[in-house]
């Protein structure tokens, strides 16, 4: 017989948050097969109020994932769509993303026509194919959660989550995102090819996924997601040892000779909610080393990409630099009070 720890560990608001996340996850999983790890990362980013950059070949399920996520969240305001998609092309204009002012002959005034950013979930497909000007407009919206047009600021919804994608190959005629803009993304996720079994499952479940009963896993309200976000922020404990470990990792990265420009302090600040979200997804009310191990490489890798040009190398570097801090953290937990 195996002993499990007492179930009363997680408190009520946190449990509700977990339920919310679990039902989103379930819904997305119905549509996307064999990508559970990516789904979890995307959920973490959603809760942590970050954005993700998916990097994969066409047809690997990026759009499906984003659509499924959009479908899992129910918009409350009529003016907002839960999901929008923009296919980025070189001839796209910033207003195609943010929206534009249109002259209304009836009122004789210019009226604002919101662009696709006025949604909860925005899929920015092939973001590196468009001009830096359009990229900058989107990234401003992502960072500031607002759109400024003709000196008028239009705020975006509090729940604004961008899933950008880019193709790692076929780079001719693209505008690679500079590191400063990559820094806006919480995660850059390289989607590995799914396994043979998963791929077979994709084929077999083709019809059932198309005909899925929405009531089987009902969409979650926007407010529920925001509540979950607040509950996780308030109730998932972050021990000071975790902070220390984060700083240790950053220092290790700065000391590493493979890294020219290490992760910024901002990235550490951004990492904390992500860690909390991951802990909550795991059913914990405190951040632990497992969260660091699972989340931190994804937070760090694309921010140190300037020197190590391959994403895998950056992941490796980030993991390398985490070994010692994680070891220190593990030892810290064995030390007595006062540490």
């Amino acid at each position: 017989m195996t002993f499990e720890e007492p179930q009363s560990e997680v408190n009520a608001p946190l449990e509700a948050a977990r339920q919310t996340l679990a039902s989103i996850r379930k819904r997305v999983q119905q549509q996307v097969v064999g990508r559970d790890d990516v789904i979890d990362l995307v959920l973490v980013a959603l809760v942590a109020d970050g954005h993700v950059l998916l990097e994969d070949f066409p047809g690997s399920g990026k759009t499906t994932l984003a659509k499924a996520l959009g479908g899992a969240i129910r918009a409350e305001a009529t003016s907002l769509a839960s999901f929008r998609r923009v296919q980025f092309t070189p001839d796209l204009l910033p207003s195609d993303v943010t929206g534009l002012s249109v002259f209304d002959p009836e009122t004789g005034r210019f009226a604002f026509r919101p662009g696709p950013v006025f949604a909860h979930i925005l899929l920015a497909d092939e973001i590196n194919r468009t001009s830096p000007k359009v990229q900058a407009a989107l990234l401003e919206a992502m960072a500031e959660k607002q759109v400024t047009l003709d000196n008028v600021t239009h705020p975006l919804d509090e729940l604004f989550f961008v899933i950008a994608t880019q193709n790692p190959r076929d780079l001719v005629g693209t505008y690679p995102l500079p590191v400063a803009q990559l820094d806006r993304f919480l995660f850059k996720i390289r989607m590995e090819p799914i396994g043979r079994e998963a791929e077979l499952e994709v084929l077999r479940s083709r019809r059932s996924r198309r005909d899925v009963d929405p009531m089987d896993a009902p969409p979650v309200d926007r407010s529920a997601v925001l509540e979950a976000r607040a509950a996780i922020d308030a109730h998932v404990h972050v021990d000071d040892a975790i902070h220390e470990c984060l700083v240790d990792v950053a220092e290790a990265l700065r000391a590493d000779e493979r890294v020219a420009q290490a992760a910024s302090t901002r990235s550490l600040v951004l990492a904390v909610p992500a860690l909390q979200a991951h802990a909550a997804l795991e059913g914990r009310d405190f951040v632990s080393s497992a969260d660091l191990e699972a989340i931190l490489p994804h937070v760090l890798a694309h921010r140190i990409e300037a020197v190590a040009t391959q994403h895998e190398e950056s992941m490796l570097t980030a993991r390398d630099c985490m070994t010692e801090p994680l070891e220190r953290l593990a030892r810290t937990t064995l030390r007595g009070p006062g540490r």
Binding site: E5, D239, R284, T333
Partner: peptide, 11 residues
Amino acid sequence: TRVHLRSALGP
């Protein structure tokens, strides 16, 4: 392990 970590890193 979870019990331990909760006591060491948790609330």
